[in-house]
């Protein structure tokens, strides 16, 4: 049983077809990069996997079950640009939002522990608007990890942050790989080639690629050439 099983998926927004007859299998405890040109449906694919969108046709199994049966077992890090940074909560409160089932005291201890691991314990009482892009992104990852997910889904977690923060995030994700499966959308093929075990190229359908195939194709405009080389 694979961690993620997609079989003959079709999805469209009205007449705009995003995915057709797309299939893929992702093994447990692997790091899979999702790449593709802008607007190709990478975020749509993540939302289908998370159960936030329903496919027009096809079957999706997550951890052997339908997405709605694994709610609470999935961690999700959305695109940072879509988050309201002015929302009046502290870093600690942001991380604690990731779990609504655990009792507050236990959850707080767990959140502080996670913040220590990601190097943000000193900033736990800071409002989220005072965090840098990299710090906020790490706090979002901590939020997605607090409920001990078996599958972690990340949408461009290294976009618009500096190289040092990027390295910290990738290091954190690689440590998580022992405990669960990682799916990460990124435009940064350099990051994907260093961290991922395999790659899903999204372009109308899904093509699974070994990670060495994308080495040397760092420029975004080369996606079509990448597909031609398969």
């Amino acid at each position: 049983m694979s961690a993620v099983h997609l079989k003959n998926i079709f999805f469209s927004y009205d007449s705009n077809v995003i995915l057709k007859d797309s299939s893929a299998d992702i093994d447990h405890n692997t790091f899979t990069g999702i790449i593709g040109p802008n607007g190709c449906g990478k975020t749509t694919l993540l939302k289908l996997i998370l159960g936030l969108l329903k496919p027009n046709k096809g079957q999706i199994k997550i951890l052997g079950k339908s997405p709605k049966d694994v709610l609470g077992k999935l961690g999700y890090v959305p695109q940072m640009a879509n988050m309201d940074r002015d929302f009046p909560i502290s870093t600690l409160e942001l991380v604690m939002m990731g779990d609504t089932k655990t009792k507050i005291k236990e959850l707080k201890d767990k959140a502080i522990n996670l913040l220590e691991i990601i190097g943000l314990k000193e900033l736990m009482n800071s409002p989220i608007k005072y965090l840098s892009g990299g710090q906020f992104q790490r706090a979002l990852i901590a939020r997605s990890l607090i409920a001990d997910p078996q599958l972690l889904v990340l949408d461009e977690p290294t976009a618009n942050i500096d190289t040092k923060s990027e390295e910290k995030i990738i290091d954190l994700l690689l440590r998580f790989k022992k405990y669960g499966t990682i799916l990460m959308v990124s435009h940064n093929l350099d990051v994907i080639s260093k961290a991922a075990d395999e790659v899903l190229l999204v372009q109308n359908n899904i093509t699974t690629l070994p990670v060495d195939k994308i080495c040397g194709h760092f420029a975004l405009g080369l996606y079509h050439k990448l597909k031609d080389t398969i």
Binding site: L50, G51, L71, G72, Y76, F87, E93, M97, T100
Partner: peptide, 16 residues
């Protein structure tokens, strides 16, 4: 807590 999550991130609320 639930209202706070819904106000900040509706998708997170659905996933929980």
């Amino acid at each position: 807590r639930k209202f706070l999550i819904i106000c900040f991130d509706e998708e997170l609320a659905i996933l929980q």
